[in-house]
């Protein structure tokens, strides 16, 4: 696992993921970061432990008359779960993201959106959206503010903005108050996974056009 991650998930995000109240798009970014970050995995484990303690303590419901036999019947219908393949340490994408893409980086169905920027929107529930973005090294993303929350995980390369430098594994948590202008570091394209819960508002004419094409 990576040890040089310096930008992590916030407590509210970890708790909401644990309680199961996040939109699917945000859960995908959280699960992807946790896959790469031992620290946030341990912090999430603490929230899950709260859930477990609540489960122990939330009372009991009476079961159907044949609940146990019916459960055994369900088990009999299921195949034994295969032992999961060893984690693909060489992959660019962590397992939950590979699930949504149908493979690693080379399987992404990119769509060019101008200026060398490419994106791929991933299918999730409609309450928020998540996309992969590829920004050429040295290029700037359109200037934009947020109407809602935005969660961005870097998977390759790096970008920097007012909040600092974000490299592989780093996650930026932005709310409506941050008006930022991320610039990709020189070198390989910066590949990010970005979830938004409201349309971004870009400032300026060109970006407005980009917004239409980006479907942000």
């Amino acid at each position: 696992m990576t040890t040089d991650i310096s930008h992590h998930l916030t407590e509210p995000l970890l708790m909401a993921y644990s309680a199961g109240t996040l939109p699917e798009a945000f859960s995908l970014v959280v699960a992807s970061h946790v896959s790469l970050c031992d620290e946030c995995r341990a912090r999430l484990g603490a929230y899950d432990a709260v859930g477990g303690a609540m489960l122990e303590d939330c009372g009991v419901a009476s079961l159907g008359a044949n609940a146990y036999a019916e459960t055994l019947a369900r088990i009999a219908e299921r195949p034994e779960a295969p032992v999961p393949p060893p984690s693909a340490d060489l992959a660019t994408f962590p397992a939950p993201l590979r699930d949504y893409v149908g493979g690693d980086l080379d399987a992404v169905q990119w769509r060019a959106v101008g200026g060398g920027v490419k994106q791929a929107i991933l299918p999730t529930s409609a309450d928020a959206s998540v996309r992969l973005l590829s920004i050429p090294g040295g290029a700037a993303m359109p200037d934009h503010g947020h109407r809602g929350a935005e969660l961005t995980l870097v998977l390759q390369g790096a970008f920097h903005d007012e909040d600092g430098t974000f490299a592989r594994g780093d996650v930026e948590v932005a709310d409506e108050h941050l008006n930022h202008r991320p610039v990709a570091a020189r070198g390989v394209p910066c590949i990010c996974l970005a979830a938004t819960d409201a349309p971004l508002r870009f400032s300026g004419l060109m970006p407005r056009l980009a917004q239409r094409f980006l479907r942000i």
Binding site: G20, P23, E24, S27, L28, V30, A31, S32, V34, S35, R41, L44, V83, P84, P86, S87, P94, A95, P96, D99, Y100, T124, S125
Partner: peptide, 13 residues
Amino acid sequence: LRKQRQPQPEDLT
């Protein structure tokens, strides 16, 4: 209940 998937972190095997 919510008809969504909950993406899971990679299992540590």
